[in-house]
């Protein structure tokens, strides 16, 4: 819960809408609208997971960038493109892996092997 707001929290509010979509809307629509309802439910679940995990993931990401002495993904991307990491591309992937896994953990956790 984020002060000064009342319950329900942002997550709880979103959850209430997701439950309504799952319980009432999904059953009463079909075809394209049903598919689009599923997409909406899926996006709400992404937001819910991000609300839960986002803060910790942000600090993991920041510390990975700091270890690589870059300020942002954009800066790192530009350095890789300029060939500055050519001697250690695979090591770099291993370093970036936890950050990417964090993104998948929010976007689609069942995708992780």
């Amino acid at each position: 819960m984020t002060a000064p707001h009342d319950r329900p929290t942002a997550s709880e509010l979103l959850e209430s809408i997701r439950e309504w979509l799952e319980r009432d809307v999904l059953a009463s629509v079909e075809g394209r609208l049903q598919f689009h309802t599923r997409v909406a439910i899926n996006s709400m679940n992404i937001v819910l997971r991000e609300l839960e995990l986002g803060a910790a993931q942000e600090s993991t990401h920041a510390s990975v960038l700091a270890d690589l002495h870059v300020a942002s993904d954009a800066e790192l991307a530009a350095r890789i493109r300029d060939g500055k990491h050519d001697h250690e591309l695979m090591q770099l992937l291993a370093v970036l892996k936890p950050v990417v896994e964090d993104k998948v953990r929010v976007a689609n956790p069942t995708y992780l092997r």
């Binding site: 993904d73 991307a77 530009a78 890789i80 060939g83 990491h85 591309l89 770099l92 992937l93």
Partner: peptide
Amino acid sequence: PHPVFEVAFRWLEQ
């Protein structure tokens, strides 16, 4: 920009 995509571009070119 995505660092992993840039690594992939480098690898593909090499």
